[in-house]
Design a protein around this nucleic acid. Structure first.
Lengths: 144, 144
DNA sequence: ATGGTCGCCGACTAAAAGAGTCGGACAAGC
DNA sequence: GCTTGTCCGACTCTTTTAGTCGGCGACCAT
């Protein structure tokens, strides 16, 4: 229904929280899970995924936890979402290996691709750092 | 996963097809279903929904079918999608009656709302008529 | 060295949404 | 009155998402 999954949702909350708190050391899964009332094991899986993609780094053992691998301004929302959900395709027929029987006739593909490009661009333009501050890009205009 | 359902997909194809062909009379579900290789009953349900929302009008009996209720330029993609999928919410916590335990602390809400507003605006700006022509709004720019 | 804390990982279950089907009722034209 | 076609609700099947469980290995302090 054109909606992000909770994976993306939780992941963004968590990485944002880490961004705000990792200057004093790593942040444990448990702490984040409690803070946001997210099932701990679920969040753990999400963070593991982010770690595997290199967006955050893990520290094992007691006093362990997660920290950012880059500075907040250098991590975009788009990266986080793609790390968790894979490439963005707002319609299935734009995927690789789509067997849409209407490849030829379908006139929707072009405009849909544009919409998708716009969304992707928007997500890639917004960094973690901008989540905190108030100067989120204001509103989008369509260049006619 | 941030994706439109096939309902929306099929619905757009169909209404666009109707827009192109209804000057000569109504268009039957069967014809559209065959044209796009969509299960006929499924498409029927989708069109019923569009009819109920007043975007298209139905004509019963033989030689019956569907026609647009307005001119193509006056029907937007956004309308069609909302008619089929309900209001657009890219994250569940922006819905009515969301019991997100983080209403207070969550700093994601504002930026997410912006992204959503941008998408909605984009969909509402694009009309059926523009699907056919090539002058789809080119690319979006972010007003910083 | 050892035990508790914490991240790592894969397999599993449960719930919800999506996609598609079936069967019957009704309407209009031939 | 029969055929063509729409209307409509209930039902099933499949896929995705959400969440759970249990064992493993790293790390640090005592």
């Amino acid at each position: 229904m054109l909606r992000f999954t909770k994976r993306a949702d939780y992941g963004l909350m968590a990485i944002h929280y880490i961004a705000l708190h990792d200057d004093l050391g790593t942040v444990s899964v448990k702490r984040i899970a409690e803070e946001f009332a997210i099932p701990q094991e679920l969040l753990a899986k999400i963070l593991q995924r982010l770690a595997k993609q290199g967006l955050i780094v893990s520290q094992n053992g007691p006093k362990g936890g997660y920290g950012l691998s880059r500075r907040p301004a250098e991590i975009t929302i788009g990266e986080v979402i793609r790390a968790l959900e894979g490439p963005i395709n707002i319609v299935s027929c734009l995927e690789e290996s789509s067997d849409c029987p209407q490849m030829e006739r379908c006139t929707l593909r072009r405009p849909v691709r544009k919409i998708q490009a716009a969304i992707t661009h928007m997500l890639d333009t917004m960094s973690l750092a901008e989540l905190t501050s108030d100067d989120v890009p204001e509103i989008l205009t369509i260049k006619a």
